[in-house]
Design a protein around this nucleic acid. Structure first.
Lengths: 107, 107
DNA sequence: TCATATACCTCGTCTGTCAAGGTATGTTTT
DNA sequence: AAAACATACCTTGACAGACGAGGTATATGA
């Protein structure tokens, strides 16, 4: 596992929630968006993505529904819930605190 | 496992290296120093600390020696190597990049 | 027809963290 | 004198998130 992966560990759910704040989306699209947003420096692996979706749904942070595409592969959409919005804010604050702490510990 | 633990995951080695930049130290002291530095908001657990020491030594980032205390419990000191100093700088740069990336992904 | 892109998913492995346990020495409190 | 605490080291086994490797299905373009 690369250092980057370990540094990013634990942020997956927050990254997904942040993405869903704007609008509902589906796995494949979220993956592409994140790659684009980071200029291909970070690719959320599919297995990682789907296991995060499962955790988020179980926690009640997102809900899912099937898209009504009449052509192409079916899409499973994800929507953030009110609980998810709160979780996102909580994550974000934790990140701000952790960031400060790590900065301090690394001088 | 708390969210904080997962966010901090992967920083342990860098935190230790940063600490050893100033002066040689030993496990118990490093642990106390980190707690103090973070106002008790973060405690590096002993098992985590010692497994990090093992990885760092195996990688050649630190070397160890026994202290010459004539009283009290013996202390195993750790010293950063030149390779470790490079590793530290590498970590730090990765952290700066990751930080920017996460900030961007969380908006 | 075959490759590629879109779109979903699962299984098993790896690795850092940590709870729980242990050993030993010295000091302070009861 | 005994018990509790602080200092100091260490190991084992389990957990959980990340991910490599594999799978399924639909549509399009060469």
């Amino acid at each position: 596992m690369s250092i980057t992966s370990d540094i990013l560990r634990g942020h997956t759910e927050a990254i997904i929630l942040s993405h869903l704040l704007e609008k509902d989306s589906y796995g494949y699209q979220i993956n592409k968006d994140i790659m684009k947003k980071t200029n291909n420096r970070y690719e959320l692996k599919e297995a990682t993505l789907y296991s995060a979706f499962r955790r988020l749904e179980q926690a009640g942070s997102i809900r899912t529904y099937w898209g009504d595409e009449t052509t192409g592969a079916r899409r499973r959409y994800y929507a953030i819930t009110d609980f998810g919005r709160q979780a996102y804010l909580s994550y974000k604050q934790e990140w701000e605190e952790a960031k400060e702490m790590i900065d301090h510990l690394l001088q």
